[in-house]
Structures are given as C-alpha cells and as structure tokens.
Simulated scan of single mutants.
Amino acid sequence: MAYSFTINDRQVTAEEGDMPLLWFLREEMDLVGTKFGCGIGSCGACTVLIDGEPTRSCVMPVEAVDGAAVTTIEGLAKNGELHPVQQAWIEEDVPQCGYCQTGQIMATIGLLKYTPDPSETEVREQLNNFCRCGTYARLMKGVKRAAELTKAAGEAGEKA
C-alpha cells in the first residue's frame, strides 16, 4: 500500500507504512535536520510538526501520517526569511552543540501556537525536549524572544 502526504509543502509517497517517519525523512528524503536521539520518543530531538502539532517522529509510523502535512526544520524558512523562532534562536545564541535544537525549535513553534506569551513556568512545563548541554537558560531567552518576534510577525501580517 502507498501512503501519500506532504513534507514541507511537497507531495510524497511512501511504501513502507511501519517505517518510523524519522527514518523516512532522513534516509528517503535526505532531510537530515531532524535528529535521532533516543528512538523511544523521550528526548525530542526528532520533533517535527504534523498538521501543525509537534510530534516525535521516531515513534510515528509513516502510515499514521497518510494524508497529513509534515513540516521539518528545512521547511520553516520561506522566501529566504527565517521563521521567527529560528531568528530568535540566532539572536539569543541558544544552541551550544546544536544537536537538539531543531527539535527544540519545532516544539517551541507548537508551544507558541497555543500559548503566545508563555510564562517561565509554562515553558518549563510544556517544553520537555532534552538538552544534553544544559542550555536551558538560553532556551528560555530564545522562547521569550520567539514569542515577541512571532507576535510582531502576526501583527505585520494583519496590517498587510
């Protein structure tokens, strides 16, 4: 059986329904920004957006995304413009080694979708991606800056 879905606005088809989405992205689509961390959905390094919701791709079989829209880190920038969360990460110098950061960025996008101005407590409760380097203080600054930039981008879009 073939499974059809979009990845970063591109229609794709997959044959192996039980293959984890992470491996389809990395091995079949050559989208290596999504990282393998634990393989059991605990660390969050593999987080992507599925229909706009942050999802751990290492435990998501391809068949479960049939008909869905998948967004990876490679699909965030549009027309040469970084996504506000990516821009915030640069401005606040969030990453240290950077391995977990694509998952952190995708999880932050999901957080800001429902909580546009999160408190520190909300960030700590809702972002449960693991950072081995312990850059949580910079991550907190990045989320706050991302909230500001996302709000500004939304307001600019409303005025246009």
Rank of each mutant, 00 (worst) to 15 (best):
residue 97 C to A: 12
residue 156 A to Q: 12
residue 34 T to C: 08
residue 143 V to P: 05
residue 59 V to W: 02
residue 6 T to N: 08
residue 120 E to F: 07
residue 75 G to R: 03
residue 153 A to W: 02
residue 36 F to W: 13
residue 17 G to L: 11
residue 148 E to V: 13
residue 61 P to C: 08
residue 57 S to G: 04
residue 55 T to D: 03
residue 6 T to R: 10
residue 101 Q to Y: 05
residue 68 A to Q: 03
residue 112 L to E: 08
residue 156 A to W: 02
residue 62 V to R: 01
residue 123 V to D: 01
residue 74 E to W: 07
residue 104 Q to F: 12
residue 57 S to N: 06
residue 72 T to P: 09
residue 149 L to H: 08
residue 76 L to A: 00
residue 91 E to R: 08
residue 133 C to V: 10
residue 116 P to R: 09
residue 12 V to T: 15
residue 84 P to Q: 05
residue 134 G to P: 01
residue 152 A to N: 14
residue 34 T to G: 07
residue 24 F to V: 13
residue 143 V to D: 00
residue 145 R to Q: 14
residue 139 L to C: 05
residue 119 S to M: 09
residue 60 M to C: 10
residue 150 T to K: 00
residue 24 F to C: 09
residue 78 K to S: 00
residue 3 Y to G: 09
residue 138 R to E: 05
residue 154 G to M: 09
residue 146 A to E: 00
residue 28 E to T: 12
residue 30 D to I: 04
residue 126 Q to F: 09
residue 16 E to A: 15
residue 133 C to Q: 05
residue 92 E to R: 14
residue 158 E to I: 12
residue 152 A to Q: 15
residue 45 A to H: 01
residue 44 G to N: 06
residue 111 L to W: 04
residue 98 G to W: 11
residue 149 L to C: 09
residue 54 P to K: 11
residue 25 L to I: 11
residue 114 Y to A: 13
residue 72 T to A: 07
residue 87 Q to T: 15
residue 10 R to M: 12
residue 44 G to L: 06
residue 34 T to V: 02
residue 132 R to G: 13
